[in-house]
Design a protein around this nucleic acid. Structure first.
Length: 139
RNA sequence: AACGGCAACUGUUCUAUCGUCGGUUGUGCAUGCAAUCGGAGGAAAGUCCGGGCAACAAAGAGUCGCCAUACUUCCUAACAGGAAGGUGUUUUCUGCAAAAGGGAACAACAGCAAGUGCCACAGAAAAUAACCGCUGCUUUUAAAAGCAGUAAGGGUGAAAAUGUGAGGUAAGAGCUCACACUAAGGUGUAGUGAUAUAUCUUGGGGGUAAACCUUAUGGGUUGAAAGACCAAAUAUACCGACAGUUAAGAGUCGACUCGCUCGUUGUCGGGGGGUAGGUUGAUUGAGGCUUUUGGCAACAAAAGUCCUAGAUAAAUGAUAGAACUGUUUCUUUAUAAAUGAGAGAUUGACAGAACCCGGCUUAUAGGUUGCCGUUUUUU
RNA sequence: CGGGGUGUGGCGCAGUUGGCUAGCGCACUUGCAUGGGGUGCAAGGGGUCGAAAGUUCGAGUCUUUUCACCCCGA
């Protein structure tokens, strides 16, 4: 049975790992998301993936709107995380992931889910395709 | 009754599934899993004031500077906050009335009679005033000119040397007097007081202190990323004790004075910086609620009762359904109309704790209550 | 969380002790000049001085509140 959890070990909290991600990670844009991701050695992080969700103060002035957007994105990640995990377990990878919301318009869950799935497909393809690069970063 | 304004209070609810943070219990002990309980606001916001708390070799003193406050009394831990009162201004009502009185709102309401500055344009003149005018004298046929006096009248302007009446004079003028306006002081009455009122004395004459400033009162500085502890790690900053040295210099608002502390070298002892973590500070408090008593009120006291978020790359969410609220469309019912019933669509404000309290300010759909204004109708 | 600063035509800036109709450069429009364009010369349009209150006879300037943006400390 699959548990759609989102605990502390699945979140990216370490300052060092965040700097590593933005330094060496790969970036692509799937509107309205800007995504950074990078592959880590197996013992570096406890779970399959650690994610951080980022909504800029520039885009949403009010704290209420920022929190709402983060929560909606988090729900998308939580309910669709096994699509990502299945691939990672098959490949035996662990990754860091950063999702930045770069639109300045609010969305409800249904609209967000469509955009999220679109982004997720791009991410899965990228992970699948970049096998050779991962070996280099590992070494 | 409708509409508008202001103030106060309130500011969606329930069920299911998945998830999140904290507490407790059970199990387990590479800290997870299960159950159960709890989990944003009136402004959590702006960071504008006042405290608590913490650190600083003195977190010592004085003078000047700097900053803030400014009718009175009270409340409060404190405040630039609040309550009550006084005074003034605006508006409205009663009223023949800019007499008097009632209601509401607002006030950066100490001092331009301490000094200095400023007052564009217009105007003679914007503060030791004199263009036209008025009066007298001289020259002169007269008109007019010159000299002297004067500030009633004129026009300009936001503002023009206090207003009215009488005396007075060549003409006039606070030049003199009465009344009015107004400052300081004394006395009586009412009041804790601001002040009101009556009276006496000495005066005063443009405005501006959100102009410099004067007077009175208050202010040490910094800010929880303060600070305390623990583990990992390790060149040697720093600290303490003892001994020697006493000159320059340094020290947490700016300057100066006095005072205080430190200093440089050696020995011994203790461990620091950078990096990245954890615990604490940190949620029981000037706490909330109810009742009683005191007080016009703010508020205070007593008794009873309750424990009610604690995150840290930052928790309180998502989905589905139902109800409720408002708006709008359609159908239907009775009807002059308002309205009632059903169905569909749509909507639910402002806004998210970051050490904690007391205020202030600003934002706020809808609902309730109170006050004020406008319009209409009835009596 | 704390501290500092800036908002003035389309853009970049002046405007210091309140005062007459708010200026300057570039850009824009029109005309002249040229065979045409640029350069040049002449004329012109365009501003509620970020917003709202207040003080004052009078506010871009002074005071308060508020909105937006930028920078710094950690």
């Amino acid at each position: 049975m699959k548990h759609y959890t989102f605990t502390k070990s699945e979140r990216l909290c370490s300052k060092r790992l965040i700097e590593h991600l933005f330094d060496k990670g790969q970036r692509f844009v799937a509107f309205p998301f800007s995504v950074y991701w990078c592959v880590m050695p197996n013992d570096a992080i406890p779970d399959n993936a650690q994610v951080l969700i980022n909504v800029s103060k520039r885009k949403f002035k009010r704290a209420v709107d920022r929190n709402r957007t983060k929560r909606v994105i988090r729900e998308c990640y939580r309910l669709h995380k096994y699509e990502l995990y299945d691939l990672l377990e098959a490949k035996n990878y662990k990754i860091l992931l950063s999702l930045s919301y770069i639109q300045d318009k609010k969305r409800n869950y249904a609209s967000m889910e469509v955009k999220y799935l679109n982004m997720l497909n791009q991410l899965l393809k990228a992970i699948d395709g970049n096998t050779s690069d991962i070996a280099k970063t590992d070494n």
